[in-house]
């Protein structure tokens, strides 16, 4: 990882955020909502509306409005929520923190399940365990989050009453409450990921097991267990880093639905509320923060990959 590589990656993150900001600003500016009406209500006088428009800069050309907005974003000011009147930034970042707890738990849960399962399937290629795993992952990938969430809530919350159906408890408040409230959302978020990653781990493991250097190790008289752990494991797991990073985009989308269903005050729910209320500053901030999170995750994954895989040096 040379200086040039880091510089290139930073430039690409900046470019990503620039493109996303234009995209988000462009889409939201076309929203058929008059910010002034949203603020003052339907019964406001035309004079009051005009005054608000001038104050908010709504009469300026779009590009000027964009520059004003992005200029403030650069210094960390995401504007004021039209719904609550509070600054958007702190609210969004607090929500992002809760979403990240959910996302990281889902990824950890997924790794614990998917990696051993995928490897077991590859090692038993063609046998029952392999077919069963493939079948389950095929089914798992076909359940959208809202279906999984509703069905899981039906079983574990409504019928068995083991876990709460909705809500969020901060980890500092009560560890037990935190975990029990986190369980169903994290499980929901991990289902599609598990299904996808199991298939990837299986095919990566098969590729490695069929490679020349594994054959060479076997033909050097290395015992099978040592071949798997010492030679195959690391090489099969390397590409999974990249796959998981790409899945984060899907995960973030899924989190919007999951937070809505389980009433978790994360960034996804903030966004849904903002979209419903046509609260422009909140929509813009939320979308931008989500995209930036994704871009950062991918860069981190690339860096992790370079550290783990000695073959690749970004120079």
């Amino acid at each position: 990882m040379s200086f040039g590589w880091l510089l290139g990656r930073s430039a690409s993150i900046v470019y990503t955020i620039l493109v996303v900001s234009i995209l988000v600003f462009g889409i939201t500016q076309v929203l058929p909502a008059d910010a002034a009406v949203t603020l003052l209500g339907e019964n406001a006088t035309p004079e009051a509306l005009a005054a608000v428009r001038t104050r908010l800069g709504l009469d300026d050309p779009y590009w000027l409005q964009y520059l004003h907005w992005i200029g403030r974003v650069v210094v960390g000011d995401f504007g004021t929520s039209m719904r609550t009147g509070q600054p958007v930034g702190p609210e969004m970042f607090a929500a992002l923190g809760r979403s990240l707890i959910l996302a990281v738990s889902a990824i950890l849960l997924m790794l614990v399940v998917a990696v051993p399962l995928g490897m077991a399937a590859a090692l038993n290629q063609g046998r029952f365990a392999d077919t069963a795993t493939s079948l389950v992952s095929f089914v798992g990938i076909a359940f959208p989050e809202f279906v999984t969430a509703t069905l899981l809530a039906l079983v574990f919350a409504d019928t068995l009453q083991w876990l709460p159906a909705t809500g969020w408890v901060a980890p500092g408040e009560s560890a037990g409450g935190f975990l029990s409230h986190l369980a169903l959302p994290a499980l929901t978020a991990s289902v599609v990921l598990v299904a996808h990653v199991v298939r990837m781990v299986r095919s990566e493991t098969l590729d490695v097991l069929h490679s020349d250097y594994i054959r060479a190790a076997r033909l050097k008289g290395v015992p099978e267990g040592r071949v798997l752990v010492g030679h195959a494991l690391r090489n099969a797991l390397l590409p999974v880093v990249t796959i998981v990073a790409l899945d984060v985009g899907y995960l973030l989308g899924g989190i919007i639905v999951i937070e809505e269903i389980f009433a978790i005050p994360g960034i996804g729910r903030q966004l849904m509320v903002a979209i419903t209320a046509r609260d422009l500053p909140s929509i813009q901030a939320g979308a931008l923060i989500m995209a930036a999170t994704y871009a950062l995750t991918n860069t981190l994954a690339d860096m992790a990959y370079t550290v783990l895989d000695k073959r690749i040096r970004y120079d």
Partner: peptide, 28 residues
């Protein structure tokens, strides 16, 4: 048997392969 084979391969029979770039493990 498989157990005997791991003692024969590499010790009593050695093998050199066609493509050295794929017969060495890239991460070791």
């Amino acid at each position: 048997r498989p157990k005997e084979l791991t003692r024969i391969r590499g010790r009593r029979i050695g093998m050199v392969f066609q493509d050295p770039s794929t017969s060495l493990n890239p991460t070791l």
